[in-house]
Structures are given as C-alpha cells and as structure tokens.
Simulated scan of single mutants.
Amino acid sequence: MSADPSELLSTLELTEYEEQALETLLMLGQTSAPDLSEATGIPKARIYGVLDSLADDGYIKIIPGRPKMYQPKPPSDILDRAIESRRQQFETYQHDLQEIRDDFVDTLQPLYESASEEVTPTEELFYVVDVGDPSEEETRRLYRDADTHIDIITKSFEYLEAVEPTLERALADGCTIRILFLDPSHLSETNQRIQCEVVEHIHESYPGIETRFSQNPLPWRGTIIDPSMDYDHGSAIMLVEEENIPLHKRQAAVTDNASFVAGLERYFNLIWTHESQPHYPPAEDA
C-alpha cells in the first residue's frame, strides 16, 4: 500500500467517526450498523447518524432489509462524489454573489466612501469555530467557566458523550442546568432514537438537570452560561439551522457579548415557559 488510508481519507474533511466508519467499511465491505459500531468503537447512539451522513454525501449506499446493510462505494466513486460536491457548492456560492453584485456595490460603496478614516474600536460581537471537535471544545470551555447557570438548546444532544464529564463537573459544582430539546415529532427516526437514549440517560444519571421539549422547530441551538439581564456578563455558543448543509460543514458562533447573551437567554426563557412541555412525548404511549 502506497499511503496511510487514514491520511488519504482525511482529505475528504470527514468527522473522526465518519472517517473511522468509512475506512472500516472499505475494509469489511457490506455490514450492518451494530456490527460496524462494534468493529470501530463508535457508540451505537452515534453510528446511525454517522452512516446517514456518509450516505447523504454519496460515499456509501444503504441496502434495505432487516437489518439495513451499509456498503461503501468504490474509492474512485467516492473521490468523484467529493469533487462534484465541492464544485456544486462553489458554483452555487459564485452564482449567489453574482446575483447580488449590483445591489452590493451600489449599497455599500457610498458607506465605504463616507466612512471616517478614524475607526473607533468596538467589542467583537462573536467569533466562529468549525462544528465538530472545535465547537465541542468551546462547549466544554463554557461548561468549565460557568459559575451558576447553564442553558442548552439542542435537537437530540447527540454530542453528549463528548462533553458529559465536563457537564457532570459543572452540575457537581452547583450549576443549575436546563436542557431544551426539540420535540421528537420534528426529528428523523435516527435522531428520535438518539434523543430517546440521551434523555433516558440524563434522567437516570442526572436527576438534577431539568429538561423540556419545544413544541415548535427552533432556529438555533447551542449553550448559554451565566446570562445577566443587567448586560454585564454571560457567554454563549450557537449554531443556526441551515437546511441541506451537513453538520460537519457548518460553523458555530461564540460570543462573550453580555447584551447578545441576554437576548439569547430571553428567547430561551420564552420557549421554556410558553412553548415547551416537560415530559418526553413517546412516554405517554408506554
């Protein structure tokens, strides 16, 4: 073999779990999700989401059945699909920019020309990090920095395993923690399964954590710590919903702007109080 398979697969910009799953599939061929989970060490709560993402990218195919089987595409097809995906993204981006060129220049050029040469320093509203390991590290940092309060908005909290030890320490240190999940009726079957497992784990292991379920879709998700309605402290990380953009290709915004954090907290409290329910919906049918 002329090169390390992991190094070659890293050029596809996959998450660590996706890279492990694809490399193992290429070695094993057709296999089931539970078998792949056992072979790779990827948690069963994550393996279906990983495989769905690889299928969405066109790198593997799903073979219906009981159980479903997953089969990798040939390496040449995988490369061709990656190239085509990047080409389509660039062409869409280029087209969108060309569409607004006239308005962009006509609107912003006068502002540019009239701007003062003396720039007054202002506080940076936020900075961005890639979703995945960087955003999970930022989330752990927020948990470590929290003194009294942590609020979390999430679909299914599928990243709990990556941040759980830090969250557990924050709870032990006396932080109040609330998690606002998305009602499972708005989730795919895969995310419903993940959410159910996560919620059961939280209720069994951390009864001090409050949970509720938003009745309506949410435009963003993330974490808020120590918000102040006096606008003097607070931090947050947030990810806005972007339909048809894979999670690992998105970016999250991190902010220490206390006024912005207060606004996020007001939104959280409105949903928590008026548009959410405390029980896990499927439990009613049990």
Rank of each mutant, 00 (worst) to 15 (best):
L51G: 00
R140V: 01
Q109L: 15
E99Q: 13
N257T: 00
D4M: 07
K68F: 05
N244C: 01
P165K: 05
Q251K: 05
L79G: 12
A146W: 09
D133I: 08
Q89W: 10
R221E: 10
E197Q: 15
L79H: 14
M229D: 15
M238T: 07
S205W: 05
T139C: 04
E38C: 11
F268M: 08
M27E: 04
L167E: 01
R86A: 12
T176A: 03
L111E: 09
E117P: 01
Q192C: 12
L14I: 02
A39F: 08
G49D: 06
P184K: 12
Q30V: 12
F157P: 01
Q71N: 11
E18I: 02
Q195W: 01
T273C: 10
A253N: 02
F90G: 03
A283M: 10
D77I: 06
T24A: 11
Y143C: 08
E84I: 04
D4F: 06
I237D: 05
A252K: 10
C196V: 07
D151G: 14
V50F: 07
S6T: 08
F104V: 00
L26W: 12
Q98K: 12
R250Q: 08
R46D: 04
R101A: 12
L108S: 01
Q89Y: 14
H248P: 03
Y267R: 15
E243D: 06
K61P: 04
E99R: 15
A45G: 02
E136A: 14
P5C: 11
P110S: 07
L108Y: 11
V240E: 07
R87T: 08
D232V: 10
D106L: 15
T15N: 01
D230Y: 15
D133L: 10
I83P: 07
I153K: 11
V131T: 00
T273A: 12
Y280L: 15
I152E: 05
D106Q: 14
H233P: 09
E241W: 10
I152T: 14
Y59A: 04
I194P: 03
N216V: 04
I224F: 09
E124M: 13
H201L: 09
G174P: 02
T92L: 12
I47T: 02
P219R: 07
F260H: 13
P110I: 07
L125G: 00
E275S: 14
G263F: 09
T148P: 03
Y206M: 15
T166A: 15
A33E: 06
V198C: 10
L247H: 01
F104Y: 07
A262F: 05
A82L: 10
T176G: 04
S114H: 10
S116Q: 13
S228D: 06
Q195V: 03
Q277C: 07
D145M: 10
M69W: 03
E13I: 00
